[in-house]
Design a protein around this nucleic acid. Structure first.
Lengths: 208, 208
DNA sequence: AAATTTAGCGTACGACCGTTCGTATGTCAA
DNA sequence: TTGACATACGAACGGTCGTACGCTAAATTT
């Protein structure tokens, strides 16, 4: 029985499609999301699925936009109100690590997955991903620079080098968890993040 | 003109297929390697391509095996003869970083790409990848433990945590290069690797 | 010289891909 | 009550996917 839905329900359908697409993409990649599979999983017709987006590329971009929004909500916003400088930077790292460890996606962090999938391809998904991740990196670099200005980090800290390192470490949680079944990845990652920031390790006494 | 090839030439054909497959996979992923595309790129028929392997999964496994062999040749073997301990560990890091920066694949390091692609999937490719990468990590951990025993690294060094960190940093070069166009990734990565090993930074004077 | 093996081609298959239609059913405004 | 609009359906499209089978012809073996 088609046409039974109100406009409000249509928005819910759209959200359901995107959530399912992000779940699939976290495991099989954004390219592994097929319209037929989405339709089957959501018990819809293929045309009902793609009708909300127009084309597969638009669906991929919409999925990326949703994941980006969730990432910002769960990583950046929880730390936003912390004291600028080292506290806020470490708050970001903590939220980031915790989020990547428990992202809600079956395949781990969607952002990391798609970053590696689309980094060397061409097209609109790559471009949008580069834009988004570039923004995130500039945010991180600004945060690092602030921590240098407050004196919490050494004066010769290279923000770009540190931001690259933090990103690599956070992304590395994905294969560690799913390929090797590691369970200590959160503490490993936080430890390594402190190391690249040239801070003393977290748990044991700072200097004694 | 079929049947024109000797057994020796057949081996060369097989190698050419695998090299092309690895090139494609480094950009589009191991799943993006299609038999039809390989055939077109090599000016062969589809059946001529798949005849060497029997099935696509076997072709994927053979591609992974080739890439693993090259990785070992270019990362592990150049450092094999160095002095066990910190010199050999740093030699590995250097060769690893240099290799990932200039792997010969158009899409960056094949191993990193496929690690992220197949980490949370199921099947023989995942299993073989997990086995291979597990082996590599155990090799790294052994190397780290040796460097601890020689006193080059702090006694409380956690080999698993450090091996995870080195792996994440090396893999992180891929998206940094291709998504952001970074050119300093080699020095960034080596710097970060020294940091997680809790060594002083490389370029500037060690202690002054 | 005859027989066997094998690399590779051509064709065909069923399945799924993304996309495009026409259509039916529902909501909402006039 | 009627008309416009949105939602979703079902069917069909051309194309590509992986795979299977039969064939030729060269290389190898007997």
């Amino acid at each position: 029985m088609p046409g039974r839905s109100s406009a409000h329900e249509a928005l819910e359908t759209r959200s359901a499609i995107l959530r399912t697409a992000a779940d699939i993409a976290s495991v099989e990649g954004l390219d592994g999301v097929s319209i037929g599979r989405l339709a089957a999983e959501l018990r819809m017709s293929k045309s009902g699925v793609i009708g909300h987006f127009g084309s597969k590329e638009e669906l991929q971009l919409a999925t990326l936009a949703l994941a980006t929004r969730i990432f910002r909500e769960r990583v950046w916003e929880p730390a936003e109100h912390l004291t600028p400088g080292l506290p806020r930077l470490l708050g970001i790292c903590e939220a980031w690590t915790r989020y990547t460890d428990n992202s809600g996606y079956p395949g781990g962090c969607f952002i990391a997955q798609v970053s590696y999938e689309y980094d060397s391809r061409e097209g609109r998904v790559h471009d949008e991903l580069a834009r988004t991740m570039g923004l995130w990196r500039r945010t991180l670099m600004a945060e690092i620079d602030i921590a240098v200005e407050t004196g919490d980090l050494p004066a010769d800290t290279d923000a770009a080098q540190v931001a690259f390192s933090l990103n690599a470490l956070a992304s590395g949680m994905n294969p560690a968890r799913h390929l090797h079944g590691d369970t200590d990845i959160v503490s490993w990652t936080l430890r390594a993040m402190r190391a690249v920031l040239r801070l003393p390790p977290p748990d044991p006494a700072p200097v004694t």
